[in-house]
Amino acid sequence: MSDETLNLTLRVWRQDNSDSEGEFRDYKLSGVSTHMSFLEMLDVLNEQLIEAGEMPVAFDHDCREGICGMCSLMINGQAHGPDNATTTCQLHMRRFQDGDTIVIEPWRAAAFPVLRDLVVDRSAFDRIIQSGGYVSTNTGNAPDGNAIPIPGKVQEVAMDAAACIGCGACVAACKNASAMLFVSAKVSQLAVLPQGHAERTGRVLNMVAQMDEEGFGHCTNTSECEAACPAEISVSNIARLNREYVRATLVNRD
């Protein structure tokens, strides 16, 4: 492995709180090892800022291994940066060139207001799940795990959809800021599994209604969401969501 270092210009969105106007500020950072992760690079920037007496850049992160969905960032206009199937915390600096200017912004969507710098409020996603993204089974009610066999193939489809990490990249990448990919992943997982069948109709109707209420836009059908998704959630889930929705409107008698 080559142990190169990079000199970079970082153009970072700074904003004190949700009411204030934000702006880009440029920072020079030198000697960045190509082995660093993108967030480690921001850590180094922050250490430098603190030493200079400037507020460090606020950004969300937690697991730093691509699974919690807490990290975000538009990097040069791309959600989670240039790599496929990669969260910002898994992105490494070997992906960049010496002398690059890197533009770093928060997710931009009306339903995800900025709290500070690069931190946004994604609680809309929780409210969508509250509206129906579950199976209503109280603790203690369950039959034996093997009572209902689930063919391996069905389980694989469910697992593919269930892999969504809830980061919001799909919304950020969409020019309409649509949450269709996120919603469709949960609807699909529970629609294909027998455990989800009983509530299938209400679930899709309620989740779509909540999505609209939160101010997410309509699907553009351009699959930007799929391209940005670090968990490789497929747009075929959106097709299933649409089918589920049509079916639900036909059978719904409430």
């Binding site: 089974t137 369950a142 795990g145 066999p149 063919p151 389980q155």
Partner: peptide, 19 residues
Amino acid sequence: IDQCVSQGVPFAREYGGTL
């Protein structure tokens, strides 16, 4: 395990559908 299966947790399964 039973509880999680009933919630729709997609545990790995054998070809025939058992856990």
